[in-house]
């Protein structure tokens, strides 16, 4: 296993670590959230607009002052019929469209005014509530970043701070955006890394981070497979031991210790109270947990990187890279706070 793999893993984790945690925590939120509430639908109810009209009172569509209609629907609003004329529209209702309304009994152009918007907002809300304000907003809108058409925003005076968004070209309630929905939208923004407010997830920032995260997982798994091949990831936990003579140079004590064959020397010495210096905790990256032996022991990639050629020739190795079964006799230099007094 090349040393750069470990180094890359560390630096990648520094780059994407916080976002990776954000992905996990927001993912947990999506797993646990109440869907109806999180959509802002706690107080949403449907409105029945259907009415009745004597058929002969509808004026023919030929009399409408409109060019280039692609589609005409009969739309009911509070029991009155309107022609909804589509001149241009996209695949989704949030995309920019050109839709006009006409009174179906007079043919006059019709605009969904503030008082109708207020009425729709109140009727769409389950329970008594007061209105704070009503405004016709032009895109872009903070709470509906994808929306490309003007919408009525009616602010209600309730505990959840509900804003009702109404499409002027249909009278349809686009959304109730309340505090419950705002939490979900924030979670989506974090999960999609939509920090620039595009309303979507197809952007360079998240693509870059996804690539870096893929590299992070690949380097991590490569590291794990290296540990596995080194026998330090065995599932069968055999506690076979082997006696190793350990000479502690700074205290001039010598111990004969029964060390676990399939743990690293670094770990099994620590279990016996002999603490070697280390910064990385046994990852083979800091090069501090050196030991010396006069036996012929293989040189790992980490030994090679962290120890000079002359040190290697003198028998220095890293304790975190070798298992007890490789070596019977070592000299170590310990941390000052090591308290090993036994035998």
């Amino acid at each position: 296993m090349p040393q750069w793999n470990k180094s890359l893993h560390k630096w990648l984790s520094l780059l994407v670590g916080i976002q990776l945690l954000i992905w996990l925590v927001t993912g947990l939120y999506f797993n646990l959230m109440d869907h109806r509430k999180a959509s802002g639908n706690s107080n949403l109810q449907s409105i029945n607009h259907q009415g009745i009209i004597a058929p002969e009172r509808l004026i023919p569509v030929t009399q409408l002052a409109v060019q280039n209609a692609k589609h005409i629907g009969l739309l009911w609003l509070f029991g009155k019929p309107y022609y909804q004329v589509t001149i241009e529209r996209g695949a989704h209702s949030y995309q920019a469209h050109n839709i006009k309304l006409f009174d179906a009994s007079t043919g006059a152009p019709f605009t969904l005014n503030e008082s109708l918007a207020r009425t729709i907002a109140l009727k769409s809300y389950n329970g008594p509530v007061n209105i704070i304000s009503a405004d016709l907003l032009a895109p872009p809108m903070d709470e509906l970043p994808k929306q490309k058409n003007p919408l009525w925003q009616v602010k209600l005076q309730d505990e959840l701070h509900t804003h009702v968004y109404i499409e002027p070209t249909s009278g349809a309630v686009v959304a109730h955006i309340n505090d419950e929905r705002r939490v979900r939208d924030l979670m989506f923004k974090l999960h999609f890394m939509d920090y620039l407010g595009t309303g979507g997830f197809n952007h360079w920032l998240t693509i870059t981070f996804a690539l870096l995260t893929l590299a992070l997982t690949i380097t991590g798994l490569a590291w794990l497979s290296e540990r596995y091949r080194a026998g330090q990831l065995s599932f069968t936990h055999q506690h076979k031991t082997q006696n190793v003579t350990v000479h502690v140079s700074n205290t001039q004590h010598t111990h004969v210790l029964a060390l676990d064959k399939h743990s690293t020397l670094f770990d099994s010495l620590a279990q016996q109270g002999i603490m070697l210096p280390s910064n990385c905790g046994g990852g083979g990256t800091c090069g501090m947990c050196r030991i010396q032996t006069n036996q012929p022991v293989k040189v790992t990639q980490a030994d090679q990187t962290r120890l000079s050629q002359s040190k290697l020739e003198q028998g220095f190795r890293l304790a975190c890279q070798h298992n007890a079964c490789d070596i019977q006799h070592i000299t170590v230099r310990t941390l000052k706070r090591t308290n090993k007094n036994a035998s």
């Binding site: 952007h203 996804a210 893929l214 690949i218 991590g220």
Partner: peptide, 13 residues
């Protein structure tokens, strides 16, 4: 984690 990275990368790109 590998699955999340690969599937996430596909979906955002």
């Amino acid at each position: 984690f590998l699955v999340w990275s690969i599937t996430g990368l596909y979906m955002v790109s």
